[in-house]
Design a protein around this nucleic acid. Structure first.
Length: 199
DNA sequence: GATGAGATCCTC
DNA sequence: AGGATCTCATCA
């Protein structure tokens, strides 16, 4: 079943990031269905989080969408090359987001291989936020897309990840965030081979 | 108008 | 270790 809007509008983004493990993401781009199970996420806690793009109420054309009510996609370009896929959460005015960092492929594997230019399936097909977006065909055209819609959406398949199977650690690539860089807000499924390699 | 850095990944 | 090369913040 598709996750309802009410799933996304809850206030605790750190809790939400953990609950997203075991949920499934799907995209339908160019008429082709691709998707898989989320195995790695990071929480970004809005205005008070030094690692968040919306820190100190920063509003730009890019971050504007983060202040919207939860349940939509925030897609942006990092390093001029890679699109990263985020899920906006919480109520209007609270710029919380969850970065989806890795999935375990389920459907559309052929198409994902094509998009990635790979010959055979390997863990790095979808392990990492940049390559995951390539595999799922995610780019700026999904900026602000409704996650209860038909271009990109999430499903609950009753795959329960017990809390004992969830590992936590500091978020990746945010050394600039000073003390907030130490927060253990990265979550992944213990032992899952589709999780991105930490550096 | 110029510069510097970034929620990354691949190749050497 | 370095390169690709878009968007934004800061400074002039």
């Amino acid at each position: 079943m598709k996750l309802p809007k009410s799933f996304y509008t809850r206030p605790d983004v750190v809790q939400l990031a953990q609950e997203l493990l075991g949920k499934y993401v799907y995209t339908c781009v160019d008429g082709i269905l691709t998707g898989g199970m989320i195995v790695e996420t990071e929480a970004y806690s809005g205005q008070n989080d030094k690692a968040c793009h919306a820190h100190l109420n920063r509003r730009t054309k890019r971050t504007e969408i983060m202040y919207h009510e939860g349940g939509i996609a925030y897609v942006y370009l990092v390093y001029g090359i890679y699109h990263l896929f985020n899920i906006i959460t919480n109520t209007e005015g609270n710029a919380d987001a969850v970065l989806v960092r890795a999935i375990e492929p389920e459907v559309g594997v052929e198409e994902m291989l094509l998009r990635r230019g790979m010959a055979s399936i390997k863990p790095n097909l979808t392990a990492g936020p940049g390559v995951l977006s390539i595999a799922l065909g995610i780019d700026k055209k999904l900026y602000g897309a409704d996650l209860t819609g038909s271009a990109v959406w999430l499903e609950d398949k009753n795959t329960n990840i017990p809390s004992a199977s969830i590992a936590t650690g500091p978020r990746i690539g945010i050394d600039y965030a000073e003390e907030d860089a130490l927060l253990p807000w990265r979550f992944w499924v213990k032992g899952n081979k589709w999780v991105s390699k930490k550096k």
